[in-house]
Nucleic acid binder design. Structure first.
Length: 441
RNA sequence: GGGGCCGUGGUCUAGUGGUUUAUGACACUUCCCUGUCACGGAAGAAAUCGCCGGUUCGAAUCCGGUCGGCCCCGCCA
């Protein structure tokens, strides 16, 4: 018999079907037993008489007849609540071991280390799964939006011969007889490919060895990048806002049930995302709070929350774009503003109080780029392949990137970015807590 | 890198102005239950209160150290 998806069972009333899935909860009433069976499409209640014991979360295969429930037994909480399966044959494909904690609750009430120590199990919980269904939709939304902007997907390496952008801390790896580094960003490769394919996007893993232990930092993240040739600064901001809002809007529209489960309102996407220069944003913060941040080189997390509150009040927008950060605070390839070189043609996109994207117009002149590299005490020799791109007709170009986990975290208002990563890596954990390992380096 | 806080059965917790049989819930085991849907009822097992040392007649509780964890700032996605 062909397997029927659980989402299809309401259309199969009166029919004998085969379903496969996991026994999410088992309610044993003596002779009669109710099993809520979950597959990747949904949940259905199955009823059996004199069943052998089925441990919770066991993989099961059930044959039986789909029947309509009497009016008073309908469960309005679940999609399949008007029907149920009367079990004729129950087969346990794999009996689950005893749960280390209660998996049957609506929410897993676990501390973060416990949640991650038991990741293979906790990922089976519907509320955890919802996070990653949304995340998949965010990535898909990014692809759709980038392709609307005529970008082509490219696949770039994560091992590089030199540390890509200098300054920040990188992971060093042994590479045959040499040292190599895990990339902090696909930046240099996407610029090279943008010089060839004109418009590109990349979804890449990136690695940061910074000793940051916060609720929004990971050592390995998925970064989603775009890079555009022949775009000037204002068009670049248009592209940023198109992709940034389009991606989040897409995810929200594709996964409304996830937003509902987490009690999250749909994102407010304005027709025009408000744009402020850093100094303008700082003036607004000063007016609103009295805190004088107008001399600061960047917005701190409190400032980001404040300027987002302003955007929501004044523009009914969950998004705000901040531009013109100080040149010396940005990466070497960032183009200084010709009208005021102290500041750069750089930008951040903020969403609900947090930075979800950074980018800039790039320096596309070879000599200027070499000067920028040397002025930061880096060696142009380490950028040989990259610089090659700027010798052969590199047009004005720029781009931006998003952190997938951080976007996911912020859409669902999760309290820690680790919850938005299937297998988070940080200073203390790679799958298991590093402190539990014997081979301390 | 700087600062703040927390470690109690498998899990999540109460108790931290010194005297308890160390609280409760869920999970687990046994029994009862043919309409539950986070099923219900009865009973049971399960914690030397992270570890080491100190103060005291007496420490889960106070002090010191140590290990583990969480949060904030810096930096960033």
């Amino acid at each position: 018999m062909n397997r029927t998806r659980i989402s299809e069972t309401p259309q199969a009333v009166g029919q004998k079907v085969l379903i496969k899935g996991w026994a999410q909860t088992v309610r044993d009433h003596g002779k009669i037993t109710f099993i809520d069976v979950r597959d990747h499409t949904g949940i259905i209640q199955c009823v059996g008489v004199n069943l052998t014991k089925i441990p919770v979360e066991s993989a099961v295969s059930l044959e039986g007849t789909i029947v309509a429930r009497p009016e008073k037994l309908v469960n309005k909480e679940i999609v399949t609540g008007t029907i149920e399966m009367q079990i004729e044959t129950a087969t346990v494909l794999h009996a689950a071991h005893e749960m280390p904690f209660d998996m049957g609750q609506k929410e897993l009430n676990l501390e973060l280390p416990t949640l991650l120590d038991w990741r293979a199990l906790t990922l089976k919980h519907s509320r955890e799964q919802a996070i990653f269904r949304l995340q998949a939709a965010v990535a898909q939304g990014f692809r759709e939006s980038a392709e609307e902007m005529e970008c082509m997907e490219v696949f770039t390496p994560t091992v590089a011969a030199s540390s890509t952008e200098g300054g920040a801390e990188v992971f060093k790896v042994q590479y045959y007889e040499h040292s190599a580094f895990l990339i902090q960003s696909p930046q240099l490769y996407k610029q090279i490919t943008a010089g060839a394919f004109e418009r590109v996007y990349v979804i890449s893993h990136v690695y940061r060895a910074e000793p940051s232990v916060t609720t929004r930092h990971l050592s390995e993240v998925v970064q989603m990048d775009c890079e555009f040739s022949f775009l000037e600064f204002p068009e670049l901001l248009d592209a940023l806002e198109h992709v940034g809002t389009g991606m989040i809007k897409y995810a929200a529209e594709m996964q409304p049930d996830v937003l509902k489960l987490y009690g999250i309102d749909h994102p407010k996407v304005p027709t025009k995302v408000p744009r402020l220069k850093l100094r303008e944003a700082q003036e607004i913060i000063k007016e609103r709070t009295g805190r004088d941040v107008t001399k600061e080189q960047d917005l701190n997390p409190e400032d980001e929350r404040e300027i987002c509150a302003w955007a929501l009040e004044m523009h009914d927008s969950d998004f705000v774009t901040i531009t013109h950060f100080p040149t010396k605070k940005r990466a070497f390839y960032t183009m200084p503003d010709p009208e005021d070189p102290e500041f750069s043609l750089s930008f951040d996109l903020l969403f609900r109080g947090i930075e979800i994207s950074s980018g800039s117009q790039r320096i596309h002149d070879y000599d200027e780029l070499v000067t920028a590299i040397t002025s930061r005490n880096m060696n142009p020799k380490d950028f040989e392949l990259y610089l090659q791109a700027f010798k052969f007709g590199m047009p004005p170009e720029g781009g931006f990137s998003f952190g997938l986990e951080r976007v996911t975290m912020k859409i669902l208002e999760l309290d820690n970015v680790r919850r938005a990563s299937l297998f988070p890596r940080d200073m203390e954990r790679v799958d298991v807590r590093l402190a539990t390992l014997q081979d301390k380096a």
